[in-house]
Simulated assay, not measured.
Amino acid sequence: MASFNWVSFLRITLLLLLVAAITVACFTLPVEKILKDFLLWVEQDLGPWGPLVLAVAYVPLTVLAVPASVLTLGGGYLFGLPIGFLADSIGAVIGATAAFLLGRTVRVSGDSK
């Protein structure tokens, strides 16, 4: 029988609080409006830097599991299919890699295997 481990308990508690906070934020905050305003800002103010900013914006959205369909469709609409697809794809791949590495780094159990 495994002994009680406070570190594991703390990690699980923090993980559950983070998931709860993200869930509440997604349902209570106007995420779609915020993303649409972001796309308008990218289109009007950034010019040729827009696709790069769009790709960078994908990373935290992917890590936090925020639905980024508005950014995907907006990127294709604003920059055209080739550039929008490239910016969306690069951002999504980097975000998925960051989420994977974060998941591998944060361990739920106290095991060091």
Rank of each mutant, 00 (worst) to 15 (best):
F27A: 12
V70T: 09
V42N: 09
T72R: 00
G76D: 12
V93N: 01
K36D: 06
F100H: 11
G110V: 08
V66P: 04
V106A: 07
L29W: 14
A21W: 10
Y77C: 00
A57P: 01
L17E: 10
Y77A: 07
L16I: 00
W41K: 09
L73S: 02
A20L: 06
S8L: 11
K113C: 10
T13F: 12
K33F: 10
K113H: 11
L35D: 05
T105P: 09
R104H: 11
A99L: 11
G47I: 01
V59P: 01
L35R: 04
G91I: 07
A55G: 08
G76L: 14
D88Q: 12
F85Y: 10
A87E: 02
A65S: 15
A55P: 03
A99E: 07
E43C: 05
V56S: 07
L102G: 12
V42C: 13
V66T: 01
V106M: 12
L101V: 05
Q44K: 15
F9A: 12
G74C: 00
I94R: 02
I94T: 00
Y77D: 05
L18Q: 02
G91H: 12
V70E: 01
S89A: 09
I12N: 15
P60A: 06
G91M: 10
V24M: 03
D37M: 05
S3D: 10
G103F: 06
K33D: 13
A21Y: 11
L86V: 11
L86H: 05
L78S: 06
L15W: 10
V31C: 07
A68C: 02
S8W: 13
R11Y: 03
G74H: 03
V66C: 01
T105H: 15
W41H: 08
L71H: 07
P67A: 02
I12T: 15
L29N: 11
F4C: 02
V59L: 07
L10P: 04
A55T: 05
G103Q: 04
N5R: 06
D37T: 11
P67L: 03
S3L: 13
L40E: 06
V108F: 14
L54T: 06
V59G: 02
L54I: 12
V7Q: 15
Y58W: 12
Y58P: 04
V31H: 05
D88V: 15
T72L: 09
P30R: 13
I22C: 11
E43Y: 06
L10A: 15
A99K: 09
D45I: 06
V56R: 08
G74R: 01
F4M: 10
T23G: 14
A87K: 00
T13I: 11
L18W: 09
F38I: 01
V106L: 10
V66F: 07
D37A: 14
S112G: 03
K36Y: 03
L102V: 04
G76C: 09
L78R: 00
G74M: 00
A92H: 07
A57I: 05
D88W: 09
S89H: 02
Y58C: 11
A68G: 04
V108P: 09
P82C: 03
S89Y: 01
P67C: 13
V24C: 00
E32S: 04
T97L: 14
L39H: 04
I22D: 07
V24D: 02
G80R: 12
L18C: 10
A96G: 14
A92M: 10
T13K: 04
T72K: 01
W41S: 08
Y58F: 13
A92V: 09
G91Q: 02
A99M: 13
D45A: 13
T97N: 10
V63G: 08
M1R: 12
